[in-house]
Design a protein around this nucleic acid. Structure first.
Length: 114
RNA sequence: CGAGCAGACUGAACAGCCGCGGGUAUAUUCCGAAAGGACGUGCCCGAGGAAAGUCCGAGCUCCACAGGGCGGAAUAACGGCUAACGGCCGCCGGGGGCGACCCCAGGGAAAGUGCAACAGAGAUAUACCGCCGGAAACGGUAAGGAUGGAAAGGCGAGGUAAGAGCUCACCAGCGCGCGGGAGACCGCGCGGCUCUGCAAACCCUAUUCGGAGCAACACCGCAGAGGAACACACAGCGCCUGCCCGGCGCGUUCCGAGAAGGUGGCAUCGAGCCGGCAUGGCAACAUCCGGCCAAGAUAGAUGGCUGUUCACGACAGAACUCGGCUUACAGGUCUGGUCGCAAA
C-alpha cells in the first residue's frame, strides 16, 4: 500500500476495509479499481500490491506503474472520492500507458471524471 | 587451437520530456510574536553483488551490571589472522583427479550402555562342509568352500599328521627409542605378535555461551482520568534463566505514569571505503603513504513515456549498523597454472 505525494494517502486498515466493502469495483487483468465518495472533498488514494503479485521487485514495479497512470489522469478527477487500486499478476509486466487506458475506463464507469 | 582448473572484476548504454526522496542555497509571496515553516527555483546526492535467507559473530540499547548448581546449545587435528566468529589463511592426516587442482561432520570405541537387519555354522564369537589323527566315540585345525559391509591383520615362503605369527621377509596396526619440525606429524631403528564397525546411537572429554532486541531504547505529549498519606507484615505478582538455590522490585513523590501522535535513535567519521606493485609475512593480515565522505524513506523515494544502439538485458529492491557464511543468477571481461594436438 502506497500513497502519492499530491494526494492524501489512505493508510489505515479500516479505511481499506470500508472502501473494499462499500465502494464500486471494476476488474481487469491489469488492474482492479475501487471508488467511494468521501466527505472530506479531497482525493484519497491507496495502492495494494499483494504477495500474489510477486516478489518485492515486482510489487515495487506494480506500484510505480499504477502511480504513474493515476498521475496522468489526476487533473481530470473530481474531488471528494477515495480510490484503491489493486495490482494483479500481469501488472508488473505491462506499460504504464496500458494501465492508464484501463484506469480511464474504470474511472469513467465510476463517473468521477470531469 | 581444443579441453579443463583456480582467482578477480562486471551485472546494457545514450538523448529528450514528465515525475519522486534527501541535502543545500535562496529573490518574491504566504503563515508565525519570534525561532522558523510552506510554496517556488538553482545545484548536488539517491539500491545490490547478493540489498535475499536471517544461519553465525560483533557494535548499540534496555533488563538487579547478570552469583552458584543442574539442564541446554555450539564447536572439534595443529599453527596463525581477526574487534569477534561456527569466518579466513597456512599446514598435517585422509580421499579423488594423468594434471592444474578439488573435497573432508577430521576428539574419544582398553569409562560404560547399546546397535550390527537379511544372509551365514558362527558377528566378537564359531566349527556346517572340508583337512588331519583315530576302528569308533571323540580330538586337533582355521589353509580352502559358502554368506556378508565386515569372518581372529594382508601376502608370499618355511614349517606340520593337518594346520596356525608357529618361524621369517615385505606391508598395515600397536608400543618403545633416536632424529627432524613451532605443532599436528614425518623419517629411521627395535620389540612383542595384534585388540570388528557404528559416537550425523546414547555417552565421555576439552573450549565457549546471562536474556531480549531499533516494534530495542530516550525525550516531547492533545482529549480524558487518577489523589492522598501513612505505612508495614504476611501473602501474592513481576523480573533476574528453562529449573533449583540465591537475589531484586513491588508506591514514590510531586505532579508524574500509561495510550493516539511526534522527535531522536538514523546515516557515514566508522573494527569505514579506494589505491599503492611501499615494508614485514608463503598467506590470511598488519604497518606506512596518498586519496574519498557516499541513499536514509516511515504505507515507505531511484520511476514513467518516446527514440537510437548492442552481445536484446539473469537473479533480484536498502529499513539500526558492520564482519562473515549460505542460497539465486543471462551474459561479458581480465589474470595465472594444467593436459592434449600442431608447430618450433
Amino acid at each position: 500500500m502506497v500513497f502519492m505525494k499530491q494526494f492524501v494517502p489512505i493508510k489505515e486498515n479500516r479505511d481499506f476495509r470500508r472502501i473494499y466493502g462499500k465502494g464500486k469495483s471494476f476488474v481487469h487483468p491489469f488492474l482492479v479499481t475501487y471508488a467511494l465518495k468521501n466527505r472530506s472533498g479531497e482525493i484519497r488514494v491507496g495502492i495494494t500490491t499483494s504477495k500474489k503479485t510477486g516478489n518485492a521487485v515486482r510489487r515495487s514495479r506494480s506500484r510505480r506503474v499504477i502511480r504513474e497512470a493515476f498521475r496522468q489522469l489526476a487533473p481530470g478527477v473530481k474531488p471528494g472520492f477515495d480510490f484503491i487500486f489493486v495490482a494483479r499478476g500481469k501488472t508488473p509486466f505491462v506499460k504504464s500507458t496500458d494501465v492508464c487506458r484501463v484506469m480511464e475506463i474504470h474511472l469513467k464507469k465510476a463517473g468521477v471524471l470531469l
